[in-house]
Nucleic acid binder design. Sequence first.
DNA 1: CATGAGCGC
Length: 297
Amino acid sequence: MSNQAKHDWADDEEVDEVAADLPPPQKITNKDGSTTMIEYHIDDNGQKVKTTRRIRLIKHREVVNPRVAERKTWSKFGESAKDGAGPAGDTTSVGENIIFKPSTTWRKDAKDESKDPNALAMKDKLKDKKVKCRICNGEHFTTRCPYKDTMTPIGETTGGPGSAAGDVGDEASAAAAAVGTAGAGKKGSYVPPALRGDRAGAGERMGGKYGERDDLATLRVTNVSEMAEESELRDMFERFGRVTRVFLAKDRDTGLAKGFAFISFADRDDAVKACDKMDGWGFKHLILRVEFAKKAA
DNA sequence: CATGAGCGC
């Protein structure tokens, strides 16, 4: 630190010679306890700028499943009767929450395996059995194809003009085709999101703030427990057919479920079955109400 | 009770 350090930046006051023409800053306390600050300033280009900020109090409160919280109050018994609260390290092992996370780098891992003679033998075996992906002709089953979600199987129409089948021999050239611009309508080529799915050429019917949603096979589920999770809902509804979307409305601040959810099925018939069976279903001490969703407001 | 996000041009 030199003697320049005497200058305190906090004393800098180049502020507000212009402040006179600006509206005064406002501070509004909202119903939910948050504060909205509205300030005005002149930017470098001499433009008047209004800044609105909303400040929330952060609640340092842990969200615990009440059933877990309740269990923690149980008194111990037997040889542990005199032990204090919480797990005793010498008699209890605390399980971790194991979360299943599919790796996004599995292809790389698979490549590394190719150095392994066993894996090579397996590959040869697959070659002999002529396992061929219908999407990219790669040596894997179609369901395992890395382009499964972005490409259409070779030979299936995408709604675009068909052309002679490209000789897509391996994954590398398939990838090149996916990235390239040439094969927009070509079989096995990249399909833009707007053209994916069953509705052919629905591109121009899109509108509204969040785009248009087909709610023909969407159920609205109400009386959903605060503690519910999307995965649990998915598990419950999947047995009726392919679930394409699960939306559980949650409070942005607390993360707790707001009590209603939407479940979309690929097939409306499955939605009908699910609606029938799940309306009145008991879930986490509440009775679900399930009905077909109406159009969003 | 209850009809779905948030990004940023």
